[in-house]
């Protein structure tokens, strides 16, 4: 029927439907549980690979290179800003009341990092102070 297509608006139909379950309940796994418990106590935990010594933040069950189970949990310190961005409009292109600055906070000698809402003047590599231990973190640059 390549040769007899029609294009009138009322002849072309669409069908509305969804592809949703009511909700998802994700388990977070043993390592994220340890992390979230630490977060409540104001601690940022990482987990160390016994072979290469890399510390993963947030902690991970396994090392992505050595592929072995990670060992001890360690508390990581000295957060700094790896990168940042400021958001002016939301997903639907509606202007936000207040622009939000989001950053990726990494920790000294650790792999990985956490998303954070940033106050103050952001700068790449700048040390930050954690104001609130939550997801996302709240930090002051």
């Amino acid at each position: 029927m390549s040769w007899d297509k029609h294009g009138k608006e009322d002849e072309l139909l669409t069908w509305k439907d969804v592809m949703e379950v009511e909700r998802y309940v994700y388990t977070v796994g043993p390592d994220s549980e340890a992390f979230l418990r630490g977060l409540r106590e104001g601690k940022i935990l990482g987990r160390k690979c016994p072979r290469c010594g890399r510390v993963y933040v947030p902690p991970r069950l396994y090392c992505e290179d050595c592929f072995l189970e990670n060992g001890e949990y360690v508390e990581v310190k000295e957060p700094y800003l790896d990168s940042f961005t400021t958001i002016y409009f939301d997903n639907r292109e509606k202007r936000l009341d207040e622009p939000i600055t989001v950053g990726l906070v990494r920790f000294k000698e650790a792999t990985g990092g956490l998303l954070a809402i940033v106050q103050g003047i952001p700068e790449i590599g700048k040390k930050v102070e954690i104001l609130e231990y939550s997801i996302p973190l709240r930090v002051r640059a």
Binding site: S83, T85, L115, I135, P136
Partner: peptide
Amino acid sequence: VYVREAKIPNYHFIAGLDAT
């Protein structure tokens, strides 16, 4: 757990971080 839960209002923020 770590990204969706952060509820950042615009998904382009990942590009923003990368671009900066």
